[in-house]
Simulated scan of single mutants.
Amino acid sequence: MRIVTGKNVKGVIHYHESKISSGSAVCIEASGFLRDVALLTTEDKIKRLENRNLLNRRAKTNTMHISLNFDPSESFTDHQLVSISKEYMKGIGFEEQPYLLYKHIDAAHPHVHLVSTIIKADGTRIATHQLAKKISEPVRKDIERKFHLVAASHGKRQLKGILMPGYGASPTKHMIDETVGIIMNTYLYNSFNSFQILLKIYGVVAMPVHQNLGLLYSLCDSDGKPRGVPIKASALKCHATFKKIRQLCNRNISKQDVYKSNLINKIEAARLHFKQGWAKSLEDSKVLVVWHKSSEGQIYGVSFIDHEQRVVFKGSDLGKMYSASSLLNKVIKDDKETIQIDFVKPLKVIDLHQILGPLLRSEGGQYAGEDQLQYFRHRQKKKKKKS
C-alpha cells in the first residue's frame, strides 16, 4: 500500500490512461461519476476531478494517488477488486469522494491504483497528515481479515512479489523500478556496496556514474553483467538516486544494531554443523554468505544477508572474528563446500556518455520512452524547486 498526494490530477490520469493504451492496465471503476466507467473518455475523467478541485483554489495539494498491492499467490475478479477498494476508501474517509480505480496487469503481483481528490463537495479539504500510518494501516489490516487476504506484515508480502527479472520477459523499466523500490525500502544496509549486492541477487545491477554523482540501473545476466538499456535513477518512480541511497545507508546504521546479535547466533550455530556445509547450514537459517573477490582472484571481504530479518552486514561489522580473513583461516579450511559459493564482483565506475550515447534522441537528448514518465518527472521538478 502506498499513498501519494500531489497537485496534478491530469498528469496522474494521463499516466494510467497511457498504460491502458499499451494494454497493461484497465479502468474498472469510476465511483461518483455520472456515467458508467466504460462510457467515460479520458477528458471526462480529468474534468470531473479537476472541477471538484476548483471548489478550493487555495489548496495547492489536492490530488490523492493510492496503490494497493496483493500477494502474487492471490487472484481476483474485477468485482472483488472493486469491493476491496470500496471498503478501503470507506475506511480512510473517502467513501463520498469521486475516484477512479485502475487495475495494472504488468507486474508479478496483482495491484490496483486509486486516483481521487482530497477536496470535498463543500469545498473543504480532507486532512491527509499521517493518513498512511494512523488511518490507512489499521484499515488495511481489517480488510485483510475481512477478505481473507495474505497479510502484508513487515514488508514480507511485497518481497514475495519480487521475481528474478528476465530480460525481454516484461517491460525492463517496470521490472527494474519494482525490484529496486522493494529492495531499497525493505532491507537495512549501511553501504552502497551492500545495496549493490542485494540488487544483483534479484537480477539488477546499480552502476555509479560521473564520480558517484549519478546512478544507472540495468538488468543483468547470470554472470552479473549488465544487459539491455540502462535506466537513470531519476527516471524511476522509486527515485533511487545515489544521494537517496546514501541517506538511507546513514539512517540504517543505527537501526541495524538490534539485529546484529541474532545474526551472530545464527553464524555460530552454523559453525557447529559442518556435516552439511557451513554455508548450507546458514542458508537453512535464511542467511546468505557472499564472498567478495578482486579481479586478481583474491578474497578481500564477506557479507551476510539475513533474509529473515531483512538486514545486510559486512563480516567486519559483526566483529573481527567474522571478517573474511578470520573466517577463511578458522572455518573455510575445514569446510571445502563453502568455497564454491558464487562471488559478487564489484562493478567499476563507468562513463555515462559511453553507455548512453547511442540511446539519446537527436531532437533533445532525452531518453526514448520519456514521454511516459512526464508525471513522475513533473513531481521531481517540483520537489527540486521546493528544496
Score class of each variant (00 low, 15 high):
Pro165Tyr: 03
Pro165Ala: 14
Tyr167Thr: 05
Gly168Ala: 15
Gly168Phe: 12
Ala169Met: 07
Ala169Gln: 12
Ala169Tyr: 06
Ser170Asp: 13
Ser170Trp: 04
Ser170Arg: 10
Pro171His: 00
Thr172Arg: 08
Thr172Leu: 09
Thr172Gln: 10
Lys173Glu: 07
Lys173Thr: 05
His174Cys: 01
Met175Ser: 14
Met175Phe: 10
Ile176Arg: 05
Ile176Met: 09
Ile176His: 03
Asp177Leu: 04
Glu178Lys: 13
Glu178Ile: 11
Thr179Ile: 10
Val180Phe: 01
Val180His: 06
Val180Cys: 07
Gly181Lys: 02
Gly181His: 02
Ile183Gln: 00
Ile183Pro: 09
Ile183Lys: 06
Met184Val: 04
Met184Thr: 10
Asn185Pro: 05
Asn185Gln: 15
Thr186Phe: 04
Thr186His: 09
Thr186Ala: 14
Thr186Gly: 06
Tyr187Gly: 08
Tyr187Glu: 04
Tyr187Asp: 06
Leu188Val: 09
Leu188Gly: 04
Leu188Tyr: 11
Tyr189His: 04
Tyr189Asn: 07
Asn190Trp: 09
Asn190Lys: 13
Asn190Met: 14
Asn190His: 14
Phe192Ser: 11
Phe192Tyr: 15
Phe192Trp: 11
Asn193Gly: 04
Asn193Met: 13
Asn193His: 01
Asn193Gln: 08
Ser194Thr: 10
Phe195Leu: 09
Ile197Lys: 13
Lys200Pro: 09
Ile201Pro: 01
Ile201Ala: 00
Ile201Trp: 07
Ile201Gln: 12
Ile201Asp: 15
Tyr202Ser: 09
Gly203Leu: 03
Val204Cys: 11
Val204Leu: 06
Val204Met: 10
Val205Cys: 12
Val205Ile: 14
Ala206Ile: 11
Ala206His: 10
Met207Lys: 12
Pro208Asn: 04
Val209Arg: 12
Val209Asp: 07
Val209Met: 13
Val209Ser: 02
Val209Tyr: 02
His210Val: 13
Gln211Pro: 00
Gln211His: 15
Gln211Tyr: 07
Asn212Met: 06
Leu213Phe: 08
Gly214Trp: 02
Gly214Met: 03
Leu215Gln: 08
Leu215Cys: 08
Leu215Phe: 02
Tyr217Gly: 00
Tyr217Lys: 07
Tyr217Ala: 04
Ser218Cys: 09
Leu219Pro: 03
Leu219Val: 14
Cys220Asn: 07
Cys220Ile: 11
Cys220Ser: 09
Cys220His: 03
Asp221Leu: 07
Asp221Gly: 00
Ser222Val: 11
Asp223Trp: 01
Lys225Ser: 08
Lys225Phe: 08
Pro226Ile: 01
Pro226Arg: 00
Arg227Asn: 10
Arg227Lys: 11
Gly228Phe: 00
Gly228Val: 02
Gly228Trp: 00
Val229Cys: 12
Val229Asp: 05
Pro230His: 04
Pro230Asn: 05
Pro230Arg: 00
Ile231Val: 15
Lys232Thr: 04
Ser234Lys: 13
Ser234Ile: 10
Ala235Asn: 15
Ala235Tyr: 14
Ala235Val: 04
Leu236Val: 03
Leu236Trp: 01
Lys237Cys: 02
Lys237Pro: 00
Cys238Met: 05
Cys238Gln: 05
His239Ser: 12
Ala240Asp: 01
Thr241Asp: 01
Thr241Gly: 01
Thr241Leu: 01
Phe242Asn: 13
Phe242Asp: 07
Lys243Leu: 08
Lys243Gly: 05
